[in-house]
């Protein structure tokens, strides 16, 4: 028995391509059976399918595995992508790039480069050290936490691909434009002095060992364990909340303060409330789900979500070690303005 499980465990690294093909097929088959599965499950329960509770249960049994499947799939792929794009490689790509094209590259690389918020400061200095311009570095620093795979997978699973694509596009836009603005303001002198001294100082290069496909798949699994293992309770809570409040709270409960016809200040208010709040993309999803379900406008909700993820008090405190207060204030101001515009544009267009 143990030798069998051991064999199974080693199988992905022995036949990586076969494993990937089968994994994709199994994933796809599972995804196709979600609706019949949820209907069958509700059918087994002593609840009338067309009752309110029956509808809520079907929604819960359908949405939960759907979102978890999507999240697992996307996180697994990102785990593999991460083995190709290390922060060191990203830095080498961005080194010496000019404002403009560099900002676009930095924001895009921010999506695929492995990034943990506790590495923000070392990453920031490491980029400057290698001669990445300040504005380009900021584009990366804004995009990396905000436009991440968890946020995209959850938006995709819960609100469809259009909302996810809009979030991706707008997130990139905010990161690029904010970086450009900060770059043009020439704020290098507001870096802490010891950081300025390190600019363009060329650091030791650390070479990542080359990987084979077995190890890349391992990295995918590792990423799934780490991310999905951490966020599934939030997702469950979010979907349960979404299913639960359905019908109990009036549909237009939030419409008068956060809906399309809400006063102009609802977007800035949403951003202002979001800044001191600190949670990751998964933690915010239950709130987003509840707000959207109750008639809040998409632009206002996305602005709120972006400001919670991209701007946070703890992050500012860490950044204070390397930036002078003027630069932190500029950073927060520029990003908040960008998010504000995104909120208005969404509300206006949709």
């Amino acid at each position: 028995m143990t030798s069998l499980t051991l064999q199974l465990k080693r199988w992905p690294s022995r036949q990586p391509y076969l494993f990937l093909t089968i994994a994709v097929a199994v994933w796809w088959a599972l995804y196709q059976t979600l609706i019949p599965f949820s209907e069958a499950l509700v059918g087994l329960l002593p609840v009338a399918r067309d009752s309110h509770l029956g509808g809520a249960l079907q929604f819960f049994f359908y949405d939960t595995p759907k979102v978890l499947l999507l999240l697992t799939g996307i996180v697994f792929i990102m785990g593999i992508v991460h083995t190709f794009v290390s922060p060191e490689r990203t830095r080498a790509l961005l080194s010496g790039k000019r404002l403009g094209i560099g900002n676009g590259m930095a924001a895009t690389l921010g999506i695929v480069t492995p990034f943990c918020s506790c590495s923000a400061v070392p990453l920031f200095i490491g980029f400057l050290q290698a001669g990445v311009p300040l504005g380009v570095t900021f584009s990366f620093l804004i995009s990396a936490p905000m436009v991440n795979e968890v946020a995209l997978a959850l938006l995709f699973g819960m609100f469809g691909w259009k909302v996810a694509a809009l979030y991706l596009g707008m997130g990139l836009l905010v990161a690029i434009v904010a970086g450009l603005v900060i770059g043009h303001l020439k704020m290098e002198r507001y870096l802490e002095d010891w950081v300025r001294a390190m600019q363009n100082s060329q650091s030791a290069d650390y070479e990542h060992a080359a990987m084979n496909w077995g190890e890349r798949i391992d990295s995918g699994f590792h990423h799934v364990r780490e991310i999905v293992g951490k966020v599934w309770p939030y997702i469950l809570a979010g979907i349960a909340l979404g299913a639960g409040i359905h019908g109990y709270v009036p549909e237009d409960f939030m419409a008068s303060i956060m809906g399309r016809d809400a006063p102009w200040w609802s977007v800035p208010a949403a951003v202002a409330i979001g800044v001191p709040m600190y949670t990751n993309a998964a933690g915010i999803i239950p709130i987003v789900e509840a707000l959207m379900g109750k008639g809040a406008a998409l632009g206002t909700v996305l602005a709120f979500m972006m400001s919670v993820i991209a701007l946070s008090a703890p992050e500012m405190i860490i950044l204070r070690k390397v930036l002078k207060p003027q630069l932190i204030a500029t950073f927060a101001g520029v990003v908040a303005t960008g998010i504000l515009l995104v909120g208005y544009v969404f509300n206006f267009v949709l």
Binding site: P87, C116, G126, M198
Partner: peptide, 8 residues
């Protein structure tokens, strides 16, 4: 930073 490490 003295070690040139960016990701902790």
């Amino acid at each position: 930073m003295g070690y040139g490490v960016m990701s902790t």
